[in-house]
Computed example of a mutant assay.
Amino acid sequence: MPRPAVTGDVPPQLRLPPVTSTDDETTTFDLDGAESFLRMFHIAHPEAGPVGPRLAQVRDEVAATGTYRHTADELSYGARIALRDSGWCTSGVPWRRLKVRDLRGLRNAAAVAGECAEHLRLACHDGGIRPLVTVFAPDTPTAPGPCVWNEQLVRYAGYADGLGDRRYTAFTEAVRGMGWRPPAEPGRFDVLPLVVETAHEGAQLFTVPPEVVREVRLEHPDLPWFGDLGLRWHAVPVISNMRLCVGGVTYPAAPFNSWFVGSEIGTRSLADEHACGAAREVAEALGLDTTTERSLWRDRAAVELNRAVLHSFDLARVTITDHHSESRHRLSWLRSRQRPAGNRPAFRLDPAAARRARAGGPARFTPHPAETTRPQSPGRLAELLRRRAEG
Rank of each mutant, 00 (worst) to 15 (best):
R155G: 02
I43D: 10
L349F: 00
T90V: 15
G8A: 14
E118I: 09
A44R: 11
A34F: 05
P209N: 15
H234Q: 12
R364H: 06
P237K: 15
S377Q: 08
Y251E: 03
S269E: 13
L385P: 04
C124D: 15
E390D: 12
S295A: 09
L192A: 03
G33D: 06
V196S: 14
G361M: 15
G179Q: 15
L38A: 05
G391S: 13
G248D: 04
G33V: 03
L106N: 10
F189C: 06
W225E: 11
R387W: 04
V212H: 11
D24E: 14
E383N: 12
R344N: 08
F256I: 09
D272Q: 08
L349G: 05
H42Q: 13
E118L: 15
A357S: 14
F256C: 13
A72D: 12
D139Q: 11
Y251P: 06
A363Y: 01
M242K: 08
L286T: 04
E151K: 14
F206I: 13
S91G: 10
E173Y: 00
D289Y: 05
G52D: 11
I239V: 15
A389S: 14
H329M: 00
E197T: 04
V58I: 11
H200G: 04
S325G: 13
L286N: 05
R232Y: 00
V93D: 07
R348Y: 10
V6L: 13
L122N: 06
H119G: 05
V133C: 10
E273Q: 08
A285N: 15
R380P: 06
Y168Q: 01
F29R: 15
N150S: 11
P224F: 03
V208Q: 12
R386K: 15
G361E: 08
G277F: 01
D60S: 13
R188F: 01
C276H: 04
A203E: 01
A346M: 06
P146Y: 07
A308G: 12
D314N: 10
A203S: 01
A308W: 05
P17E: 13
I265Q: 10
P46K: 14
T169G: 03
E115Y: 02
R101P: 04
A353P: 08
P11D: 07
P224S: 06
P351L: 11
A82P: 06
S21W: 04
D32H: 10
P367S: 08
P46C: 07
S240F: 00
L16K: 05
T373V: 12
G52E: 12
Y156I: 01
G277V: 03
Y156N: 01
I265M: 07
A111P: 09
P186G: 02
L334A: 01
T291P: 00
W225P: 11
A316N: 07
N108G: 10
A279G: 03
S263Y: 02
G177L: 00
M178A: 11
A5E: 09
L310T: 08
C89Q: 09
G145Q: 00
R356G: 02
R214C: 05
C147E: 03
F37Y: 12
R355A: 14
R39D: 05
L98M: 14
R59Q: 03
W88V: 08
V112N: 08
A79R: 15
R243W: 01
P375I: 09
F136Q: 07
G66F: 03
A302K: 08
D299K: 04
V133R: 08
H329G: 03
T291N: 11
A235F: 02
R358A: 11
G78Q: 03
A275D: 03
Y156K: 02
R388I: 05
S91E: 01
